[in-house]
Nucleic acid binder design. Structure first.
Ligand SMILES: [Mn+2]
Ligand SMILES: [Mn+2]
Ligand SMILES: [Zn+2]
Ligand SMILES: [Zn+2]
Lengths: 146, 146
DNA sequence: CGTACAATGAAAACGATTTTCAGTTTCTGT
DNA sequence: ACAGAAACTGAAAATCGTTTTCATTGTACG
């Protein structure tokens, strides 16, 4: 059921960005590439900046922020919330999946097979809310960190 | 199943703080009181500061930060993560419960009756992680916000 | 090509949080 | 009740991550 983060199709990312009217610039390509190549772990804007400059030293931190925003907007990456902070991102899986994060090394897996729709609508029926979304994350220790 | 946030026993909070070696000062009491009296909604440090100064004008913002840290450490409040930001807190319910938050007005309910232990251990069995914790939050619209 | 405009990077501004520090308050032991 | 030690406080300053501004550059499109 748990799966390695599906390897990313960078061309598809670029298509989505173009479809949303964004231009495919060098800095954008570099940032996207960094996120795509590190789809198994979370990265903060600064970490993306450092990795990006290895390939493209001119890259500016401001552009990293702006590009992460775009990538999140078109849905190819997502923000990850952790006890230590909520400013890192990871490649989003296709479809709706949940995160399993290692508290120690930050390694990430996605898992499927937990379907909450029944449980959620049961709660909805008994509350005064219309539930639009849910957010489930598992936290633990990866094999080599136990 | 959904329930009004259980009304808070402030004395119990103070006991817990004392047990952890913290001193019961005036500013701490004021901050705790603000969190206890607003157990149905989330508050940012600045909001706590403003509410606190209504009762105790000398209160400093730095002390609010320090006190929220203590309250979280002893487990009587918890940080709430939302799309708009992750810097607000709310009184924690007794025992393990999950949050149901209104996207519009910020109103909060807790709900019980969703037991994930089975689902979670099923995922654990098929992953390389030992799962220590989970984090489930429902997001929607409260009655009067729909 | 040439033009229109989105996107860039550097610097400055900004807001939230943390650190520093000198003075105050709380608790403990007498 | 009292003295002393240590925790705690508020104001100011420092710091950190993020956003805004702006002059310049690069991309898409005809
Ligand atoms: Mn789900
Ligand atoms: Mn649970
Ligand atoms: Zn968060
Ligand atoms: Zn509402």
């Amino acid at each position: 059921m748990p799966a390695e983060p599906s390897s990313v199709n960078l061309e598809e990312w670029f298509d989505r960005l173009e479809d949303s009217g964004y231009r495919l610039t060098k800095p954008l390509r570099v940032v996207a590439e960094v996120m795509a190549k590190n789809s198994y772990c979370t990265l903060s804007p600064t970490e993306v900046y450092d990795l990006g400059r290895e390939h493209y030293p001119k890259l500016g931190l401001v552009t990293v922020y702006r590009t992460l925003e775009k990538l999140e907007e078109v849905g190819v990456i997502q923000r990850v919330h952790q006890a230590g902070g909520c400013n890192s991102y990871i490649a989003a899986p296709s479809g709706h999946q949940h995160l399993l994060i290692c508290r120690n090394c930050g390694r990430v897996e996605y898992f499927q097979g937990i379907d909450l729709t029944d449980l959620v609508s049961r709660v909805e029926a008994k509350s005064y809310y219309s539930i639009q979304d849910h957010w489930l994350q598992l936290i633990g220790l990866y094999k080599s960190c136990q």
